[in-house]
Design a protein around this nucleic acid. Structure first.
Lengths: 106, 106
DNA sequence: TTCGTAATCAACCAATTGGTTGTGCAGTAA
DNA sequence: TTACTGCACAACCAATTGGTTGATTACGAA
């Protein structure tokens, strides 16, 4: 892996390294949203949501669609959820291992 | 997805969101290394390598083995490379799309 | 024991970044 | 035109973090 590729991949991971952004992605999982609807649904300010969406859009995790006054955002690719599934799988495996070490107390 | 899970997953992504750490993971891909060997191979200071390895170990991406004066680190799970493959696949797809838009100039 | 080496830790600095606030820019309706 | 709304942008602040430096711990050799 060349340094350039590593830099790009790291940038992708960085875009998903923020709970607020993962939260937005999770909301977008079911349907497309406008910025203000995402702000309402998440409890963040519209400016903050817009900023996070810029990052996600820059990393090509979401796509935009303008319609009149509104901008609709949607998931660009299901790869994100695939990535999250792997992470969650790991978390489960570790929890299981921890349980084993502690003597199956759960 | 609960906020707690989101926080954990974001932490995992954050551990991989650093070029230096991806570089170390890439070196470890082939075999296990000591901290100082990783420092030599990567050109970083041992203290810096140690710090990054703490982060990777905290996220369970690498495992440790002490042997005398040395501490050997190794990849804990191939999931990381699976994650990187997905990221790289996305990068390729985007490059391809960009090429298409530009009229197959490459 | 003492000496030297490998790894970690702690303190510090510079750079990055999440969030807020205020402003500006499109687009709609009147 | 004017007024209002949705989104993006810019400036700013506080918190985080990558990297360095120096001290400390753990282990083996003499």
């Amino acid at each position: 892996m060349s340094p350039e590729i590593i830099e790009l991949v790291a940038g992708r991971f960085r875009a998903l390294a923020e709970p607020a952004r993962l939260h937005l992605m999770n909301l977008l999982r079911s349907e497309e949203y406008t910025v203000s609807d995402l702000a309402d649904a998440s409890g963040m300010s519209t400016a903050n949501v817009s900023k996070h969406l810029q990052v996600l859009h820059g990393a090509a995790f979401v796509a935009r669609r303008k319609e009149g006054l509104h901008v609709f955002y949607r998931i660009a690719s299901d790869d994100v959820f695939h990535l999250c599934d792997i992470m969650c799988g790991q978390l489960d495996a570790e929890a299981e291992a921890r349980r084993r070490v502690l003597g199956r107390r759960t």
